[in-house]
Nucleic acid binder design. Structure first.
Lengths: 204, 204
DNA sequence: ACCTGAACACCGTTCAAGT
DNA sequence: ACCTGAACACCGTTCAAGT
């Protein structure tokens, strides 16, 4: 057997990642397996290893696409913002909306963990950093007199906070009862933090 | 074979959960398997199903123990607090310290997901709610004139925020660079949020 | 009633063998 | 060079069979 050559390596990679995405969208990261991806594209499991180093590599590459899609939406949401505050609120709102509409793909971003010793590739870390800088940038516009240190700390705190709201809201297991929407909680976090941040110096 | 009767059902459950805990502490949730737990206690895999409905049930019960341990530390940290603000800061600090020292057990709490349709048992949700109420209680002391609605929203926002700081700090994959400690980021979140919350009305 | 051992249906990964 | 098919070492889960 062999030598079908219907697809180039790049095409094989492309349809594999598309198939993986569909499986995750439909059944979450737990519903994803190398064998199912292979079946979905009409190849044998073994052929995936021509294109991906291993299963984690496939997941990481799929997740990088999700990060790209998320970044596009975030960047689009803050082109020509009316004010720095509006920009930061738009970033938070867009992040929440993405987590809500693309839930399974978004969940897969942090459900997946690297094996014990290994770390995610630099390309992955860079895509995360790129999103983080978006927050930092508009926070710097809001408080031009603050030092880089202060801005980066605040950006990290806000970003972590909004992320935490998503995590706890979408994980039904950890979700504490009470009919709050993600948006309400996120707005509370954002507004009160920014009020404190603008009014007083950044803490200790 | 069979009828060894060395342990009662309750003892079997106990040593299984202890073995599971050890495996998670050593190698994370990914290093846990029913077969390894069985090997660790000197039984066959099948016998675990006398005590646990399935593998998820074992994990949930192990995680409930972690929640208990966490709750003990949180509750102990806020007996006779000098002030409501100090109490809230102590809760955050204790939560961070637990995540840092018991990292793999803490990570297992939210790395584990229920299968597609199922939800975690009520006992699990109750333990989460109990921790949440601790925050709510001391936030109410801080702002006695605020409505229950406002307090619960603020508690949820703060709790989510602190949780987000932990998540992003401990997940090496999503961690954005910058030499901030978890404590610094959490303090920024807490202090600025509380400053905003005390100063102005709770947002929109 | 308790526990085993084997079976079943799944995994990720490798690799000799075919074209 | 590409791809398969089978093998390997693992999974969670079930259950007839033994004591």
């Amino acid at each position: 057997m062999g030598r079908r050559n219907e697809h180039t390596r790049e095409e094989l990679r492309e349809i594999s990642l598309q198939a993986a995405e569909q499986l995750v969208i439909a059944h979450g990261l737990m519903g994803l397996s190398a064998r199912k991806v292979a079946a979905g594209i009409g190849y044998t499991v073994g052929s995936l290893y021509m294109v991906f180093r291993n299963f984690d590599d496939l997941i990481i590459q799929m997740n990088e696409r999700t990060l790209d899609a998320l970044y596009e939406k975030l960047a689009a949401a803050v082109t020509n913002p009316p004010s720095p505050t509006a920009a930061i609120e738009a970033l938070a709102q867009t992040y929440l909306a993405f987590a809500l509409s693309e839930t399974n793909r978004w969940l897969a971003l942090y459900e997946h963990r690297m094996p014990e010793g290994q770390a995610a590739p630099d390309s992955f870390a860079e895509k995360v950093a790129r999103m983080f800088e978006l927050v930092q940038q508009h926070l710097a516009s809001l408080c031009p007199h603050r030092s880089f240190e202060e801005i980066s700390l605040a950006a990290r705190a806000l970003w972590s906070g909004i992320h935490g709201v998503c995590v706890l809201s979408l994980d039904r297991k950890l979700e504490s009862i009470g009919g709050r929407t993600m948006q309400q909680v996120a707005n509370s976090l954002l507004d009160n933090y920014l009020a404190g941040f603008v009014a007083q110096g950044v803490s200790r």
